[in-house]
Write a protein that binds this DNA or RNA. Structure first.
Lengths: 116, 116
DNA sequence: ACCTATTTGTCCGTATGTATG
DNA sequence: CCATACATACGGACAAATAGG
């Protein structure tokens, strides 16, 4: 995975990194099930702190793009299949969220809560 | 604001803190426009690290509950709304997701996609 | 069943940058 | 100009889950 970071770009390193990896995933250059480098490895090779990589990874995890497990590492998530009933329910929820101007992150938090 | 944290609870300190403040906001105990204590202040009074408080604050910011500005601090966002229809739609989506055994991460990805 | 290495998760500490007032 | 306060990044430490021998 070819990643270049520019500390003087104005955009945070962890965001540059997340953006870089995100592009690789959505473009299909890294495929579902594939494992990303360990955070400490990647940090060393990019010459940044582990926390910076972990924050990028956690950002991607929150977006559902990768899965993080202790001892296992970061793995690109499998594409969610579409089910018609589910997508209908999703459309309804999104419509409501839009109507109430609820931002995506808040909606995600509400749903996570409801899930448990 | 009366906050108590339990380091041995199993749930992360920053999550306990975010949950505590979130409850205060949605219940109306702290009102829109009201300013939360500065991160370093709150950290000192709770005897935790500044990062822990900042992470909790940023979690709430991502949910749209508070606004963070350098030099100004954390302010409760002002948008009193009725969420009953939204929560009903959320319940429906969660029920569908459960029925189809769609994990939370995948659901979040689907909703995020539908949002755009 | 046990131990060890791997890897993320959290927390602490410190330093510097940058927008606000 | 100056104090305030969040934003980012670095470093170190230990915990907890996972995988493999």
């Amino acid at each position: 995975m070819l990643i270049r970071l520019d500390p003087a770009s104005g955009v945070a390193l962890f965001d540059q990194l997340a953006g870089n990896i995100r592009a690789s995933i959505v473009s299909g250059r890294v495929r579902p099930g594939e494992r990303l480098p360990a955070a400490r490895e990647l940090a060393a090779s990019l010459d940044v702190n582990v926390h910076t990589v972990l924050r990028a990874y956690q950002e991607l995890r929150d977006e559902g793009l990768i899965e993080l497990r202790r001892g296992r590492g970061a793995v690109v998530a499998h594409d969610p299949r579409d089910y018609s009933e589910l997508t209908a329910a999703i459309d309804a929820v999104v419509a409501q969220a839009r109507a109430h101007e609820v931002p995506p992150a808040a909606l995600a938090a509400l749903i996570r809560e409801a899930y448990q």
